[in-house]
Design a protein around this nucleic acid. Sequence first.
DNA 1: CTGCGACCTCACGCGGCGTGAGAGTCAAGT
DNA 2: ACTTGACTCTCACGCCGCGTGAGGTCGCAG
Lengths: 256, 256
Amino acid sequence: MTGVTEAGMTVGQVAERFAVTVRTLHHYDEIGLLRPSRRTAAGYRLYTDADVTRLQHVIVYRRLGFALDEIAEVLDDPDADVASHLRRQRDAVMSRLDELSGLVVAIDRALEAEMSGIRLTREEQQELFGDGFSEEYQAEARERWGDTEEWKQSQARTAQYTKADWEAIKAETDAVNDAFVAAKRSGAAPDSEAGLAAADAHGRHIHDRFYDLSPEMHLCLARMYVADERFTAYYDDLEPGLAQYVHDAIEALRAT
Amino acid sequence: MTGVTEAGMTVGQVAERFAVTVRTLHHYDEIGLLRPSRRTAAGYRLYTDADVTRLQHVIVYRRLGFALDEIAEVLDDPDADVASHLRRQRDAVMSRLDELSGLVVAIDRALEAEMSGIRLTREEQQELFGDGFSEEYQAEARERWGDTEEWKQSQARTAQYTKADWEAIKAETDAVNDAFVAAKRSGAAPDSEAGLAAADAHGRHIHDRFYDLSPEMHLCLARMYVADERFTAYYDDLEPGLAQYVHDAIEALRAT
DNA sequence: CTGCGACCTCACGCGGCGTGAGAGTCAAGT
DNA sequence: ACTTGACTCTCACGCCGCGTGAGGTCGCAG
């Protein structure tokens, strides 16, 4: 059509044809992602049809958000698991999507506040974007669990959750808490059937929603509930003495 | 809780409380985005309450995707139009959202192909993501129409299309082309009933599938078909002289 | 006095190119 | 044969938002 197929295309021609810059092609050559098969005597890069095809692939993967070295990996290793690459990429894009739609909501609220003449006070900002406490809590959680497999799993999973998921999770959490409260109020001992059932539900809930929960981890959590004042406050707000009760129930469950 | 509010917080304390790194605070100091009001005799940074508040704002804006110098601009100029900043930011986030959802669609298609055992051959990829020709066309189209409303509409719509949509569109395109070919082969003039009907179908097809097509735009397209060798080749490959025929039919349709 | 941890200031590194600088190459026009 | 202008080449620094040391100082506890 354009009739330039004799022996290879020059950088400029390739660049124009695929809407990339010459510098980009130079860069891909430099890092070894796409080296033109041939050069002219004067050192001009000549891209063969195969090179052009490879560039097409590169462009596609780049649009999919792959890093250049990952693209090289996928393209150079025919045994590479393309599907898993794609799935991981999809996950990343989805969580970014969630983040961004959250951002839009935040912006809309800020705009609304701005338009109605209400300057964003400290308190409003904290209401909108999360208060210092939860920020602080996240920081501490990262500090304590940041390198563990559980933390990564939790982060990976919760990033996927939609608003509806969160509502379901909240409902489940409430149900688990209610089970503990009901058991305690009924006078049942922590190691009674009701107490053990609640502890079991608690473990399942975390396992299903957040991360693989080993019995040891569950015990560790139980100890946190009485050791960490934030958790203690959380449970004791629901029912005085509940933190200790939850701890005892989990210990009873996991001790067997 | 940590109770350190006497005269100012150190970098480490601020960093922990807001889940940023010390290096980040150093960086903000370097670029003048957030300079702590005071230093100890030894040169330790001391962040006052006002500094901390400013950091909160910085963090919020950063989460909104603002660049650091933009944040500085917004925070330092009380007369800056915060609302317009927010609106521009919202637009940016929204378009990024569109892009990403397009990406998800592309990934899903690739995954589907991958899962059904079909390795992505060159041909399939080209089917999925467009061949060299359309890439070339896209590059040129962007160059020519990049700033027009039609181009944006087309981009926005086509990004949403699924594989099934594309197949339907291809079928429609074929039908339109067949109508032109049939009309021409039957010896009907471009401005005959058959020719005008084909031209009308052509216009509707583009209007429905790609972008709002005004009569003027349609005429403009018709002229492209005879002026641009790629379009000429496309139609003349179907039937010699068809490009001119299509042009004449559209002219006849829109001249009325 | 000796650690230990938190702090300080350089200063290089990353990814994915953009953006020149300075020099050589190619095809067309004079 | 020479010039022009478009294209190409190879360095090599710049950008953004920090990460990650290196090498030294400061403050407090034992």
